[in-house]
């Protein structure tokens, strides 16, 4: 038998088959807008997540009525709110909270939607039929209204509770998408081969089928991440989002429900609104690049 260095070989073959991450990076590098979006997004998130290092959190929540509604100044770059709290600090903290929650919702809904979609697509037939009937129904529900009712009826309302409620209404589309691709994929012989080799169904679903759908999942997750952040901030804006005391970008924007603040104290809400807009655009631009990368990969395979 030939003696050879297997580690070296393995590395060599990995090089020959560019990973999805590499294809994405190549796509982004060649698209100035996407590259700019990625850099900007990274900067925003770095500032938001590193903010606790240089911002005193307790000072941020301390109410000081002598200092309220101060327009931007050297002390408070973006002014202060009704309780005299620094808007910039809340903006950073809010970005961090909103992004974390959007990401959690995307991941939880993603895992659940993926599992349901894989099950429906892999088994097909009656299982698929029942699951799809249920999803069809769930998709027409006025989910925003129901989420709001849930939020007011949950007794011990926490951030985690909020994440679960929103996730519960965010997985339908994903399940449907995964299911339709899985249905096509399961007709291919490598799935039949795995069955004849005695591989258990759950292993086939997650270790054979799933890797072939992974780029689809990644594309969908990046695109829905933006939507989920929008949903959280929107709900918080309406007053049915994060529990009081947890600032979100939506909290700052919700000051704008008062016309006086919209017009005369714009520094409280406008930066948050613009920041959301910028973040959404950036995430979507990166998401589009990821989508193109996955399409390009499809053409190669």
């Amino acid at each position: 038998m030939v003696v050879f260095n297997e580690k070296e070989l393995m590395a060599k073959e990995k090089m020959n088959t560019p990973s999805f991450v590499k294809t994405i990076w190549r796509e982004i590098r060649n698209d100035k807008m996407a590259l700019g979006s990625l850099i900007l997004l990274t900067l925003i998130l770095l500032a938001a997540y590193l903010s606790p290092l240089f911002i005193d959190q307790t000072a941020l929540t301390r109410v000081n009525f002598f200092n309220n509604w101060k327009p931007p100044s050297a002390d408070n770059w973006l002014g202060t709110d009704d309780g005299g709290r620094d808007v910039l600090g809340q903006l950073l903290l809010g970005t961090r909270n909103s992004f974390t929650i959007g990401l959690s919702v995307t991941l939880i809904a993603g895992v659940f939607g993926l599992t349901v979609g894989l099950i429906a697509g892999f088994y097909g037939g009656i299982v698929d039929n029942i699951i799809m009937r249920i999803i069809d129904f769930l998709m027409v529900l006025p989910s925003l209204m129901i989420i709001i009712i849930f939020v007011v009826s949950v007794p011990k309302y926490t951030i985690f509770g909020f994440i679960l409620i929103v996730s519960a209404f965010a997985w339908f589309g994903k399940a449907r998408l995964i299911r339709s691709r899985a249905l096509a994929e399961r007709e291919l012989d490598y799935i039949n081969a795995s069955k004849t080799l005695g591989t258990p169904s759950w292993k086939i679903m997650f270790f054979e089928l799933f890797p072939n759908l992974s780029s689809l999942v990644i594309v969908n997750m990046t695109l829905t991440l933006a939507g989920n952040i929008g949903l959280e901030t929107g709900l918080t804006f309406l007053g049915f989002g994060l529990p009081a005391g947890t600032p979100s970008l939506g909290t700052l924007i919700s000051y704008a429900r008062n016309p006086d603040i919209v017009q005369n104290k714009w520094w409280v809400w406008l930066p948050a609104a613009l920041l959301i807009l910028v973040m959404m655009l950036c995430i979507n631009y990166v998401g589009q690049a990821v989508k193109r990368a996955s399409d390009a990969r499809q053409r190669l395979a």
Binding site: L188, Y190, A193, N212
Partner: peptide, 13 residues
């Protein structure tokens, strides 16, 4: 065991 018809789709890429 089985040998499949299409050697392209019977191996997981």
């Amino acid at each position: 065991q089985m040998i499949f018809q299409d050697p392209y789709s019977s191996l997981n890429v």
